[in-house]
Amino acid sequence: MTQMQENAPYEVLNTMRSEAIALAAQGLTYSTQSAGVKNIAYVINGINFYCDATDVKEVSVCENLMVVPQTKAWMRGLINSKGVLYSVTDLSLFAGYGRAIQAKKGHLLLLADDAVQSSLLVNRVIGFRYFNDSDQMSDLEEKQEVLDGLSAFVDKGFRTDGQDWFRLDVRALLASEQFREVQ
C-alpha cells in the first residue's frame, strides 16, 4: 500500500472537518447520510426480526414482572420502568410459536408509543441493523408458515449473509384488535 493510499481516509476526514468549520462560520451545519434506516434487530424463537429504531424507546431486562390474572397467555404482565407501567407481551406466545420466552433471560423493547405504554418480550436483542434495498425479499408468501401469527404484521423482509430478517410493523401491531384484546 502506498503512502497516499494509507493517508486517503485521513484526508477525507480532514476535508470534511474543514467543510464543517466553514459551514459553521456561516451559521450552517454539516450532516452526513447514514447507510440506511436504523433498525433494532432481535430474535424470537430463532427467527430474526427487526423494527424501526424510532418505534423503541428503550431496551431493558424483564425484572419484577407483575402477573395480571385472567389475561391471555401472551400478556405476561406489567413492569414498572422509571415510574411508568408497561404491559409485557410475549411475542413468541402472541405469534403462536407455543413456547414462552423465559422472562428473566429475555429482553424487553419498551415501545415509544406513549398512548399504549407497551413492551415486547423477545429472546434476545442483537442491536442496530441496516439493510440494503438490493437484499429485500420480493415475496413473503412462502415465509407465512415461519411467521405464523406475526405474518399479518410483517410487511418487509431481507435476506442477507444467509439469514432472513423480517420487519415487524409495530404500529400495525399496536393498532390491531388482536393485540388490544388481552382478556
Rank of each mutant, 00 (worst) to 15 (best):
Q5H: 06
E6G: 06
N7G: 06
A8Y: 11
L13W: 04
M16L: 13
M16V: 05
A20W: 01
L23R: 15
A24G: 10
A24Q: 14
A25C: 06
G27H: 06
T29Q: 10
T32R: 12
Q33Y: 10
Q33N: 07
A35R: 10
V37F: 08
K38N: 10
N39M: 07
A41T: 04
I47A: 00
F49G: 07
F49E: 09
Y50R: 04
C51V: 06
C51A: 11
D52K: 09
D52E: 07
D52W: 00
A53L: 13
D55W: 01
C62V: 04
C62K: 00
E63V: 15
E63A: 13
E63D: 06
V67K: 15
Q70P: 00
Q70A: 11
T71A: 09
K72T: 12
M75A: 08
M75N: 14
M75V: 03
R76N: 04
R76I: 02
K82S: 14
K82H: 09
V84Q: 12
V84I: 13
V84K: 15
Y86L: 02
L93P: 02
L93I: 07
F94R: 03
A95H: 02
G96E: 03
G98N: 06
A100C: 08
I101S: 00
Q102D: 12
A103T: 15
K105L: 15
K105Q: 12
H107Y: 11
L108I: 02
L110N: 09
L111E: 04
D113L: 01
D113S: 05
D114T: 11
D114F: 05
A115M: 08
V116F: 08
S119E: 02
L120V: 00
V122Y: 02
N123R: 01
N123H: 14
R124G: 01
I126P: 00
I126E: 12
F128K: 12
R129M: 10
Y130G: 03
Y130C: 02
D133H: 07
Q136A: 14
S138A: 11
E142K: 10
D148M: 12
L150V: 08
A152P: 11
K156L: 04
G157A: 06
G162W: 03
R167I: 06
V170S: 02
V170D: 01
L173M: 13
L174W: 01
Q178Y: 06
F179C: 05
R180Q: 15
R180G: 15
V182S: 11
Q183C: 09
